Computed example of a mutant assay.
Amino acid sequence: MTSMLPMWWFALPVLLLPLWWHLQKRERTRTEPLATARFLPAAAPRQQRVPRLIDLLLLFARLLLLVALIAWLAVLTMPLKRDTVFIDPALASDAWAVQQIRAAGMDAATREPLPADVWNWLARNEHAWHPSARFLIVARKLPMPALPPRLAHTVTLRTPAPHTPAPAAVSAPAERHVVIATSPERLARWKALFAAFSTAGDNAYRYVLTDQPTPETELIVWDRPDAQPPTSWQSPLWWRTTAAGAAPERRGHIWSASQWPLQDAAAARTLYEQWQRQSCPPGAYPMPAIQTMPAQRKTPLPATLAASPEWLAAAMLALFAIERILAHVRRSR
């Protein structure tokens, strides 16, 4: 057994209260004077109380009730769980998962479904496992946490190795639809800017430039300071000149500049990087496919009172009922 809040065990001296109470509860007996008592020498009366079985049972029940209460406040747990495999439900019957479990020597381990936030879940609940227990996590993909997990048990992680496509299987560049509303003499500059964008970065995109928006349009470039866009034009992102005035409602996110298109290479690079970060947020970095993380703590993290086992609450309820019954029987005699 382990306690998550061991300071509560300093309350054990409270057990002396029932003992003191039972010692003070001496029965008073009625004495009647006898006529012949005057011939006897005077002596102080003495009382001798013989404890009955019901009194001993009542004292024992009250002591157990206090011990159960202190154990509940100290979050007494019984770490009986042993080696456990946390497996993604999608891999429960996968041959690769069975092979990884066998390779880790966890064939006889208990299997549980993988929690959504496995690292925080383990940190809150690992007090239920025996100190010598091991954890094996089998998942398709597990995001790397911001900080390395610090657990009190050894954790082995197994995920499928990332698939590397063959060079011949490289797909065609993705298309990104852009609407450019500008004068004919400035259209060539915009086309040159997007041609440079198509070769920048790690992802090669093919920009489809049109003059009318479609449902696939993700950017509208409004480079007409002397006019307002039609109210039917919609896009998640707009590039507008500051001289174009306030934009109507339902326009999406607006980026404005005093002069379009950008002529400075550094400014154009910054614009491109910000656009990519907004429209294509990077995914979470996956953790390495196979790794073993040793225990970083000697004991699990302290738990809250809500983590107290249910059997302790049930034991307190039962002991309280027994104590009330015994007290009633004792008074009725």
Rank of each mutant, 00 (worst) to 15 (best):
I137A: 09
W311E: 11
W233R: 05
T2F: 08
S171V: 02
A74W: 02
P89D: 01
P45E: 13
A109V: 00
P143C: 13
H22F: 15
W260Y: 10
T154G: 01
W72L: 15
T164Y: 01
T304P: 00
R111S: 09
W222C: 03
P41G: 12
S279T: 11
Q228D: 09
P149I: 09
L142N: 02
W20V: 03
F60V: 14
P309F: 12
G245D: 09
D117I: 11
R240K: 12
H253D: 15
E126R: 08
T210V: 01
P184K: 01
A174H: 06
F135L: 09
L76I: 06
T2Q: 13
L17H: 01
P229N: 06
G105D: 04
F135V: 04
R134Y: 04
N125G: 01
A61L: 07
V75Q: 05
L151C: 05
C280Q: 14
A227K: 15
R297Q: 06
S308F: 11
A128G: 12
Y285P: 04
P173Y: 07
A303C: 06
V98G: 01
M7W: 11
L53N: 05
S308I: 13
V170M: 14
L5C: 07
P115T: 09
V329C: 15
H153G: 00
H177F: 13
E323K: 06
P288M: 00
E218C: 11
R251W: 10
Q212M: 10
S258P: 04
A321D: 09
L34K: 10
S171T: 04
R134I: 04
A172M: 13
L56V: 05
L66Q: 10
N120K: 09
Q100I: 05
